[in-house]
């Protein structure tokens, strides 16, 4: 372990969290999922989030993704203050559409849309016209090396292909923040490596911040920092030079 990463790359973090707490339930049923968590993540960083089951990893990701409201603390995303004891912005969904890409363990593709339309959907929602949306979607699928499966329905994709289509979708609107909850759990080590390379490329190309929740030791060496959550308390675990 070395010094805090705050001053290493850029003075402007993409994700900045201070004393964020989140608990579920009250009284004897109370579970403190996050205890006064503070964290800064800068553009071009790919960081890992580790911890035993129930330690609060998904909770932290959901809070950063603005789908779960914390109980106290502050949060800034891409320079915009979004939480300070309460949400500061009425339309969190618009914020997600513009700034955040989610990658899930289960790929969550729309079963009734082909690969290319799953990706184009996000662009469609972001206001691209249909032709532009399909063009960019096709480029992204090529970039993720699943261009040959553009017209396939999700049910006919392999796990790895589906995951890459889902990543293409997460990246479609050029988010500055990418949140991935165990993105490689369903993949073999080779595929997992490819996915991590892609996230790295994205971080560099789009100056994005990437958080990867993982149990997967195979990918530890591809992460800039590894944070560890234990009972809702966040520690920096290791810092790799890359």
């Amino acid at each position: 372990m070395t010094q805090a990463p705050t001053t290493l790359i850029s003075p402007d973090p993409l994700i900045s969290i201070r004393d964020l707490s989140k608990h579920f339930g009250e009284g004897s049923a109370r579970v403190d999922a996050l205890r006064s968590v503070s964290l800064d993540i800068f553009p071009e960083q790919v960081i890992g989030l580790l911890g035993p089951s129930g330690s609060g990893k998904s909770t932290l990701l959901n809070v950063i993704g603005c789908i779960l409201e914390p109980n106290s603390g502050r949060m800034e995303l891409d320079g915009e203050s979004v939480y300070d004891g309460h949400w500061l912005r009425p339309n969190l969904r618009q914020l997600r559409l513009e700034k955040i890409g989610f990658i899930f363990q289960a790929h969550n593709l729309m079963p009734f849309l082909s690969s290319i339309d799953n990706v184009a959907l996000v662009l469609d929602l972001a206001g691209y016209n249909a032709i532009e949306a399909r063009k960019r979607a096709a480029e992204l699928l090529d970039y993720l090396e699943v261009g040959n499966r553009a017209d396939a329905m999700p049910a006919s994709l392999s796990g790895g292909e589906a995951q890459r289509v889902a990543i293409a979708r997460a990246l479609a609107n050029k988010p500055r923040i990418v949140l991935a909850d165990e993105p490689t759990a369903a993949l073999d080590s080779e595929r997992a490596g490819i996915v991590m390379d892609l996230l790295r490329k994205l971080a560099i190309d789009q100056k994005a911040a990437v958080i990867v929740v993982t149990h997967d030791e195979k990918i530890y060496d591809r992460l800039d920092y590894i944070y560890q959550l234990r009972d809702g308390v966040l520690d920096i675990e290791s810092q790799e030079d890359s």
Binding site: I67, Q94, L95, R96, F102, M110
Partner: peptide, 16 residues
């Protein structure tokens, strides 16, 4: 439900 949750997650407005 799952598709609807995903739509919300990726930022689709209620109108959609």
């Amino acid at each position: 439900i799952r598709e609807i949750a995903t739509l919300k997650l990726i930022g689709a407005p209620d109108r959609v």
